[in-house]
């Protein structure tokens, strides 16, 4: 994926109000990129899920939102980083209904469905980085 980054911003995620800030930042850029309302809603919802995971499971971290360009296509790329416990079994974590925290276990699998590209890098004990892109 040789995408050019046109613009990028970072939001620190340390509290549940930072999750709100993250959502709003993603919304602003999605509007700027002229995503349809449905697409905006999908991206913001995915951002909300992943930001909450960063906070609740990863013990806090940060999100980068980037406007990226791949040839003629533009898109929004979200990167979430934390130095928390990591995910031991990624496949299991992605499956609907799996949770270690009393949630519904929909956040990870659901946000994957809401985005076009989805990539998890995680090392138990070292942390988790999730990158998700939605193209126009």
């Amino acid at each position: 994926m040789a995408a050019t980054v046109l613009k990028t911003e970072t939001i620190h995620i340390k509290s549940s109000s930072d999750v709100v800030t993250a959502r709003q930042q993603v919304r602003t850029l999605a509007i700027e990129l002229k995503f349809s309302l449905v697409d905006q809603t999908k991206i913001v919802t995915a951002a909300s899920e992943l930001a909450r995971n960063t906070l609740d499971h990863g013990g806090g971290g940060e999100m980068d939102v980037a406007v990226v360009e791949n040839g003629i296509r533009r898109g929004l790329r979200l990167t979430f980083r934390d130095h928390g416990p990591g995910i031991a079994d990624i496949k299991q974590a992605l499956s609907d209904g799996f949770t270690t925290g009393g949630g519904m276990g929909l956040g990870l699998g659901g946000s994957k469905r809401l985005m076009n590209e989805f990539d998890i890098h995680s090392q138990p004990g070292a942390g988790t980085t999730i990158t998700a892109v939605r193209w126009k």
Partner: peptide, 13 residues
């Protein structure tokens, strides 16, 4: 809203 409903269904709820 429709966009919210569509997204929520896609999310799996």
């Amino acid at each position: 809203q429709p966009a919210v409903a569509i997204t929520l269904v896609e999310l799996g709820m």
